[in-house]
Design a protein around this nucleic acid. Structure first.
Lengths: 104, 104
DNA sequence: TTTACATATGAATAACTGTTCATATGTTTA
DNA sequence: TAAACATATGAACAGTTATTCATATGTAAA
């Protein structure tokens, strides 16, 4: 037995890494506003840039990260790319946090 | 009217900042393990260092941040300092995330 | 009252993150 | 076809973060 479980159930190193990564995905004001905008339905990069008050390049970089984590999904339409939230549970954590920030 | 609300309810810049800060508090594997250990009841710095597999100094630095955000509370006892979670809602968000990481 | 212990903290540093800028690709419009 | 548009991406840079190390403070034990 290793040093990982000192008595009662602790968070394993692996779970801790995964969970931290998940929270990190939401740990930026720009990404919060992007996800908040997507709460309202699918949006393209330009619309998200306007909603988050960021350059389209910055938004595109953020979306790349969210895409790699499979938190969002894309639909190409002509020269636009529409983004949609693709992880209901993360979306729920987001709403949960938003509640917290609003009610106090 | 400013550029902040493009149609439906968006996340304000202020809420986005606060919410990102909240998620950032949990966006580190060490802090995740610290909070996970505190789920089990109050712990002193040495116990938390063992649980999180970090130096006591590193843990102390993390605890300072959590303290400043009023996410944890302290009780001095002799030469030990015991830490307790002090924000039930953040704790709930933590558990919510942990569920997500475990069930899949 | 020394000595060891538990915790806190500042400084230094290495790694990471978010933004901008330049540029590339593919699509529509003129 | 040429020009404008929408998006993506790599490089560079500035700012932030997590850790370690040295050190300080206060408490308990010898």
């Amino acid at each position: 037995m290793d040093t990982e479980t000192p008595g009662t159930a602790a968070v394993s190193a692996d779970s801790a890494r995964d969970l931290a990564e998940l929270f990190r995905a939401l740990a930026d004001p720009g990404r919060i506003r992007i996800v908040g905008a997507l709460a309202d339905g699918r949006k393209n990069v330009g619309e998200l840039a306007a909603a988050a008050d960021l350059s389209e390049s910055a938004v595109s970089h953020h979306l790349r990260g969210l895409r790699l984590m499979r938190l969002v999904r894309t639909e190409k339409e002509g020269r636009h790319v529409y983004y949609t939230m693709d992880d209901e549970h993360v979306f729920e954590i987001f709403r949960c946090g938003l509640d917290h920030v609003h009610h106090r």
